[in-house]
Structures are given as structure tokens and as C-alpha cells.
Design a protein around this nucleic acid. Sequence first.
DNA 1: TAGATTGTTAATCGATTAACAATC
DNA 2: TAGATTGTTAATCGATTAACAATC
Lengths: 216, 216
Amino acid sequence: MEEKGISLAVIRRLPRYYRYLGELLENEVVRISSKELSEKMNVTASQIRQDLNNFGGFGQQGYGYNVEYLYNEIGKILGLEKKYNVIIIGAGNLGQALANYQDFERRGFVIQALFDVNPRLAGVSIRGKDVYLIDELETYMKEHTVHIAALTLPKTKAPQIASDLVKWGIKAIWNFAPTDLNLPSDIMVENVHLAESLMRLSYKLKTHEEAMQKKE
Amino acid sequence: MEEKGISLAVIRRLPRYYRYLGELLENEVVRISSKELSEKMNVTASQIRQDLNNFGGFGQQGYGYNVEYLYNEIGKILGLEKKYNVIIIGAGNLGQALANYQDFERRGFVIQALFDVNPRLAGVSIRGKDVYLIDELETYMKEHTVHIAALTLPKTKAPQIASDLVKWGIKAIWNFAPTDLNLPSDIMVENVHLAESLMRLSYKLKTHEEAMQKKE
DNA sequence: TAGATTGTTAATCGATTAACAATC
DNA sequence: TAGATTGTTAATCGATTAACAATC
């Protein structure tokens, strides 16, 4: 059942397929061909078929793909049929924003608690989730099963907390701090570097403007 | 001066180089070779040299790269010497988190105002930035120069607001709504799809766990 | 000058696209 | 059965790595 060496490029695209299929499902579309989907998504039909066939044959010749079936299969590939317990380290605006985001719970990511250095936040509750003082993190980790920790704290504190979390048994980190965490290779890390994203936008804008000026 | 067809892969890496060089600069490192940098960043020295040479020869044989000079040059490439006026559409937690993020202002992204549908938020001020009612957006756009709009609103509203913004002259959109915006090709869009990022983490976690079980 | 390291060309590797036989 | 569309192999394209001559 298990697959070897799926390329990172494919994995990056999977959630987008999943989103489009979810929308088709909402619109009660029953079947779709790789060609139709490719037109909606602005990719090639070939790529869709290649990507999916990394995981198995989900379609049917002459018919295409059953939307609901494919949606569920991609969900399984992404591990969305499981429940994950998530804690948020750093209860500032961004941490609170994540705690408030209902979409995550729908997909099986259950936010259990938040932690912050600020004693004024400790004891507060955000959407029914308690905020604890960061000092309580070690005890919490020992008493609960935590799958994922979201790091929404300043970059100065992120590396230390991350290695503590690893020590206390965390297996995956969703890192929003603008730094790279150098953790053992068996710890899964997904970075969200907002500043880098904004710089890419800036680059595009600048380059586009220069191209426009050239034309004139 | 202007370059043709820099690949997206290169552009994605530029902000990361910029970040590492910034840290070296803070630590008062004067020069660095592609080899040293490659070891810090976990990439090949070859790739660093290739990437940089897309934009010109910033180094010196036998010496390496001057950290400050290279930092500034990459900053220029990314368009960070310019000031950009940014508005945030959607003053919920995420919008407020962005408004509070000081790093952006440091890099020349000046958040000018927020907009929200919620009348209770209108009139409020976040870190000195006023929140306006969304109805005032059209007038605001006509009276101000706005370079970038960050969309931190529900996906149901994002496409409509995005096309309104285009109509009113926006040139770049930083999209946090979990949907693709289909805008004219001269509008620059950078997506931040948090749910997709989390799904990739879920995939990695699931795949890693399965690999572990297999070993046993 | 000798040593170091770039800039750049060539070789390799991987990912995307095209094509088509298999088959529903 | 004929038409459609997949699954998959082969061809192409692009990105990464290796190598080395240029040169500081």
C-alpha cells in the first residue's frame, strides 16, 4: 500500500486538488475528466493523471473520475481521516487567529490549548480553548497526546521552544516564526514564512512595473 | 539591467538568502563564500552561485561575497528599497495579526488602513491604523495610492472584493482566503493558503508514521 | 605568485508534457 | 460496438549539480 518517494512537487499540489474536488462536490458534480479539471485549475490534464497515478488508479477509462470517491481518496492520502491534537505556542494575534479558524477542526485538526509567556493571557479562553502559561507546557505534554505544535511566537524564542517540544515528544511542527528550525530529521516541519511570501509579491510587483515601463 | 524569465524556483529562494544574509550582517560577518553559506542553509554552493548569477556577479573570485553588499543587492532585486502602501481587507484576527506585525514596516510595507464589513470594528484603531467600513473602500481607493491589498476575509467574499479592487486600480493582492482568485494577468497575486500548508504537514506526519511502523 | 573561490559551461537528474495503447 | 478517457510509456523540457577555467 505504501508508496516510495513521492516528489515534493506532487505533494504540494495534492491539497489544491482536494480543494477543487471539495467545491465540485458541494456543487453536486458527480464525475469529472482530467481534461475538465485541468481547465478549471489551469494545469495540464497530463499532470493531473500523472500525479494521481502516484497513488493508484482512481479513474475509469471512458468515464473519468468520480468526484466524491477521488475527494475521499485524496483526503486519505493527506491523512485527513485521522484526528490530530494541535497546540498553539504563542497566543498573540496570529495564534488566536489560528485558534479561531474553524476550517481546521472540520479537517480533523483539533486545537486543544494555547500557551503564552504573558501571564495576563494565561487563564483566558479563546473559542473554548484555554491559554496556559508557557511554564506549564512540559507538564501538559507529559499528560496529553499532542501531534502538532503551531509556533506563533517571536523568532528569538522559537528554536529553544522547538527543541524543548522535541524533547517532550512532539512529532510535527507548524512553524510561523521567521527562522529555520534545525531539528532531527524524524520531526516533521512545515514552515509558513509570511515575510518571505510578501517579498515574493514585492518582487513580482517590481518586475511587472519595470516590464510595463519598458513597453512605453 | 532587466532580466528575462527568472524561474519561479529561484524567486522562491531569494527571500531565504536575504534572511540568512541579514542574520550574518547582524552578527557582523563581513564576507562569506558560497560554500560556507551552502552549509548553513542546507543547499548546494552551486545552486547559490547559479541563483545569484541570474541577476549579476555579486562576488569576487578568491574572496567570496561581501555580506552587506549582497544583502543590499538582493533587497533591491526583491524591491525592498521601495515603500509600498498596504491595506488589509478583513479586520478579523488574521487581519489584525498582519497589522500588528512590525517586521513588515521594517521592510517597507506600510499598512495604511483596514476594512471590515462589521460596523462594530469600523472606527476602531489597530496599532494606529484605522479600521473603515468596507463600503468606504471605493472612495478610499480613489483618494489614496494603494499598492497591495491583503485579503483576510472569508472565501465567499474574496473573489468579489478582489475584482472590485482590480476595478479600482489595485496592482497586487496578497490572498489569505482559501480560494484561487482568477484575475487579469497583469494583477500580481501571492497566495497564502494555510489550510493547504497544514494538510502538507498532515501528509508528512502520516507518511512518516507509516514508514516507522513498517520498520518495526 | 599561489590559493581560493567565483562565474559559467557542460553533464545529470528530475519533472512535465505528449502520445497512445488499454479498456471501460 | 464506437467513443471517450484513463493509465502509462516515451519525449521534452527545465532545474540542479558538477566541473573547471578565469581571476581576484
